[in-house]
Design a protein around this nucleic acid. Structure first.
Lengths: 231, 231
DNA sequence: CCAAAAGTGTTCTCCATACACCCATGC
DNA sequence: GCATGGGTGTATGGAGAACACTTTTGG
């Protein structure tokens, strides 16, 4: 039995919003387009879905082929299909977002891109298509998700970190300042999802800070019984 | 400037998961397919996206053309693109979910459907494609969303309702029993999102119950300052 | 000794949770 | 009068929010 469908079809693309963090704050990965439309503009990495390709695979492929970023964690965000969003015609974009440890990944331009760079989320250039909207939706989702699935945050942290670094990351994502004592109490006493190590930072300006690790086992236990949110 | 793209494209469909409630509990709307593949099976209402049609419009059109349900609130759920999910080939499904007041809407079969009916979510037949998975994802989303966006629930309630009806709806959606006193305290004292009327039910078995309305203004005020969840 | 950052406790308020009895109505 | 469902209050515990000073180190 073969049933076919032979009408004109919309094209389907995947677009990816990849966030990273460094000491300047939260950043988003953009590439400078090589081809029309919008050649020369900074835009989200993405591309057309190939025949018989799964969406998740298409997103990873598009990202790695254009920016050399591989093996990163992506999650589907939303599917955009507004009329007029793409001058080439009827193009539906399945958007993904993800997080990487910026220092672990050297990005460089590849197929279809003149250049690749990280932009602070509060200092993005004007983006083509509806990409600005997509970034906004991704940011909103990231902010929401962080409060009820804090494990996400640790995707961005090195394996060992200080509590101040962790707090700064939360502040970068949420865009607000947090109280140091309350933050530490939540991590150490309430949630207990970080574990002390014996190590400390070296060569810092102030006193050395203790290094912690993410306690995945404690996290899973906590996740089963639900979270209490807000800072 | 015209840029085209001329490779084989996946087909794009929209599928809708519509929830309703009656005294038997939470239900989902299914239709009995008329055409191959899976002719005769109960499945989610849906259909192919037309040329230059927006996704939201396609979902509403597919739903109304097959079930005569119109003007309902739909929200995008997730986009499914797993290999092998459709025997016709590479078909991507953008899924939507929505809520209706079951008693307000008489559904009846139309184009492409032999029959249309409401099924209790815990008594669904075996569904074709990956529709069972889609219903599961929709249910999970509905359950999550109810706790942080309670206004959703009132989409399913009549304009005037008793607190017991409201509580039963929450219980149907969440699949758990709730404490009557705590529930009422939350609605009336903590959230204050329902307003008393002077009316009462008539002809009931026990004593008449007071009727309440949803207080949209109070809700918006509360929504701005964030919620506290859980019952 | 000074600048910089690390680290630490307490109080108050609000909400979640647990729990049981009396009352109004229709039949 | 009885079955059915409506309606009500309190005590406890846990977490969020607000808030400031001392200590350690390198230069």
């Amino acid at each position: 039995m073969s049933v076919t469908y032979d009408f004109p079809r919309p094209a389907v693309t995947v677009d990816t919003v990849v966030f990273g963090v460094d000491d300047e704050g939260l950043k988003v990965l953009l590439l400078q387009r090589d081809a029309e439309p919008f050649a020369g503009w900074w835009a989200l990495p993405g591309g057309f879905v190939h025949e018989h390709e799964e969406l998740d695979d298409a997103a990873l492929r598009a990202l790695s082929s254009k920016t050399r970023l591989t093996r990163i964690y992506l999650e589907q965000l939303y599917t955009f299909g507004e009329r007029g969003r793409d001058p080439r015609g009827h193009v539906i974009a399945v958007a993904y977002y993800g997080l990487v440890r910026l220092r672990d990944h050297r990005v460089r331009a590849a197929t279809g891109a003149r250049d690749v760079a990280w932009f602070r989320v509060d200092q993005q250039p004007k983006l083509p298509f509806d990409h600005s909207r997509i970034v906004d939706v991704a940011l909103e989702r990231l902010r929401g998700k962080v409060t009820y699935q804090p494990s996400l945050v640790f995707e961005l942290m090195p394996p060992k970190f200080t509590l101040t670094q962790l707090q700064q990351l939360y502040e970068a994502i949420l865009g607000t300042a947090l109280d140091k004592r309350n933050f530490r109490k939540k991590m150490l006493t309430v949630w207990k999802i970080v574990a002390e190590t014996d190590e400390r930072t070296e060569g810092t300006v102030g006193p050395p800070a203790r290094l912690y690790t993410f306690d995945a086992a404690a996290y899973r236990k906590l996740a089963r019984s639900g979270f209490q949110f807000q800072f």
